[in-house]
């Protein structure tokens, strides 16, 4: 099986012997690893002014970076951050990366359209509108889903992308931003509609959110994504508990403690990776991942440390060879 096939098998919760698949929402340390700025951190102000030759050099270099990241760190899927982000450049990027990997690595990109936690400046206005203009907020939520699914249609027509990561954050460490009843009113129906629409288009759907998801876990599962991502232990989300509650319904991705990768000891990092693996591997669908991403400022050596744990301990026996 190719890495892509293994990743998709995990999302479908099919039996998967061998090394547990691995995915990171973003690997930002491309400068340290490859001497190049991550594509999402670049600003191409003069993109349209460039000659086609120069544009193609940039496209090739970004595509190569995604392919290199997947290969070097054993990532079975990569998250694309098209830059520039118009359809034409997105399609070129999909084709370019697939060509370099021989379609052996799964490709996903952002695709959320639901209301997440607004930034601080918009938070009060957003909250006020929920109370004072509920119908308008719901109409807007529906329109956002419709726009996202229209884009999904265009991507489906082009082909080459495997799925979407829905990255609207719903929760803080203490719990959901919205009261669960309000989440049920303003978010859950649209999340469900979005996931169903993407599924109908043939895409896989990974729902990401930071924070303590437990009070809205039932609603997240009811939306029927292929996978839940982050499972943040800093917010009290426990992998053993998630396996017990959700492994029969969704693939589990994450739970290796990003905070520890920053501030913990090496032993604590290894222990966190071991804990996620130990329990995650009991789930029919499980992908090894940190509880957020490999973000700017993190030590590359810490990422390599947990990958070492994955290589050594994240291997399921092949039933054919076990007597």
């Amino acid at each position: 099986m190719t890495p892509r096939e293994r990743f998709l098998a995990a999302l479908e919760r099919r039996p998967l012997p061998g090394r547990v698949p691995h995915f990171e929402l973003v690997f930002y340390l491309t400068m340290e690893a490859f001497g190049k700025v991550h594509p999402s951190q670049r600003t191409y102000k003069q993109w349209k002014q460039m000659s086609e030759t120069e544009r193609q050099l940039h496209r090739d270099e970004m595509a190569q970076l995604y392919a290199q990241t997947a290969e070097r760190f054993g990532q079975d899927a990569v998250m694309l951050h098209p830059n520039p982000s118009d359809d034409d450049e997105l399609f070129r990027l999909i084709d370019n990366v697939n060509e370099r990997t021989g379609r052996s690595v799964a490709l996903v990109m952002h695709g959320d359209a639901t209301y997440g936690i607004p930034d601080g400046e918009r938070m009060t206005e957003f909250s006020m509108r929920l109370y004072e203009e509920p119908d308008a907020m719901k109409a807007e939520a529906a329109a956002r889903v419709e726009r996202a699914l229209k884009k999904g249609e265009r991507i489906k027509a082009h082909g080459g992308l495997d799925g979407f990561a829905l990255c609207s954050d719903y929760c803080l460490n203490t719990g959901p931003f919205l009261r669960p009843a309000m989440f049920a009113e303003f978010v859950a129906p649209y999340l469900k509609q979005l996931v169903a629409g993407y599924r109908e288009q043939g895409f896989y759907v990974i729902k990401h959110t930071d924070g303590n998801i437990m009070p809205i876990l039932d609603q997240l599962l009811d939306a029927n994504p292929h996978a839940l991502h982050s499972l943040d232990p800093q917010a009290g989300v426990d992998m053993a508990e998630m396996v017990r509650l959700a492994a029969g319904k969704v693939c589990l991705i994450g739970n290796v403690n990003c905070g520890l990768l920053d501030t913990g000891t090496e032993e604590e990092c290894v222990e966190s990776a071991r804990y996620a693996l130990k329990h995650g591997m009991k789930a029919p669908g499980y992908v090894f991942s940190t509880s957020n991403c490999i973000y700017t400022g993190m030590r590359l050596s810490r990422y390599e440390l947990i990958l070492d744990v994955l290589r050594k301990e994240g291997v399921r026996p092949d039933p054919a060879t076990v007597r």
Partner: peptide
Amino acid sequence: CEEFYIPEVLVAAR
């Protein structure tokens, strides 16, 4: 004591 969520605090503050 987790009876109120953030939006409720924000609309009260407003």
